[in-house]
Design a protein around this nucleic acid. Structure first.
Lengths: 141, 141
DNA sequence: GAAGTTCATGTTTTCAAAATCCTGTCAGTA
DNA sequence: TACTGACAGGATTTTGAAAACATGAACTTC
């Protein structure tokens, strides 16, 4: 469904909502170790999010990443579309470029229904919200 | 969502339901040209389907692929699981190996709902059925 | 039974995603 | 101002899916 980069991005954001301490930045190293993903690769992904203003960062000692007030209002959909592109949620299941509502493939209509559910989920999952969901959990994301 | 191989597989099966002539075999060449996909690569995929008894074939001149009575009763889910493996419809959205109903990731429950819709669609899409859906269409699949 | 056609299959090549390497830039501290 | 820690980003390598190549096996027809 989503690329590995995208999965890492979502997990990193979730990690920040859960473990990001108020007014304190979190380094890539810490995030990468917690998520057990390659640090340098994760850094690239986080930089991409920063470039798209979905995440904030500060350089230098005690620097790191954090979610600003504005960032927290974002939905997961924005993260997904930033990394995997808008096409993930619009392109044809069968990979047909000409497939659309007016010229649908045999699976089009039913698949659109499924996918809209997915989009709904991603739009409604505000980053703030996730934090609350996570409270009873111990596992690492 | 699905791999390219899987998309080709589904499209090939759809092509056969629509263009496969009764008691006559259809060669890879014809299918590949119609779908505009690499012939040798498609051949591999079709062979995989044959090995799993989801498609039938005969060798030699006038040989080719066809859907037997038994094949026509299969659902698209079987095609998908044959090519992409069962995991496509069960693995965690975030790629977490330990994610499950009892130890869910923050997106687990909502994603499962979406995915069940998808599974339903694939189970209900019997191969026979697709043929009927296609009648009013001209486009190539 | 020889020739030609078509599926079957093992091996190699290509290409993009994933991962790593290396250097640059910025900020804080002494 | 020099040093250090951390993000930024270009370039390169690795990996695995996708595609191409080459050969073998089965079947038809003449």
């Amino acid at each position: 469904m989503f690329s590995k980069s995208c999965q890492y991005a979502i997990r990193a954001v979730i990690y920040l909502t859960a473990h990001g301490r108020e007014g304190q930045n979190t380094g890539v190293k810490e995030i990468a170790e917690a998520l057990q993903v390659p640090q340098q690769f994760l850094a690239k992904i986080l930089q991409e999010l920063v470039r798209h203003h979905l995440l904030s960062s500060v350089k230098g000692p005690n620097g790191g990443f954090f979610l600003s007030e504005k960032n927290l209002k974002m939905s997961l959909l924005e993260v997904v579309e930033c990394i995997d592109g808008k096409a993930v949620l619009t392109s044809c299941v069968l990979g047909l470029p000409q497939c659309s509502g007016v010229n649908p493939c045999p699976l089009h209509h039913q698949f659109v229904t499924c996918r809209e559910g997915m989009r709904e989920m991603l739009v409604n999952k505000k980053i703030t919200e996730i934090s609350a969901d996570l409270l009873p959990q111990v596992s690492r994301f």
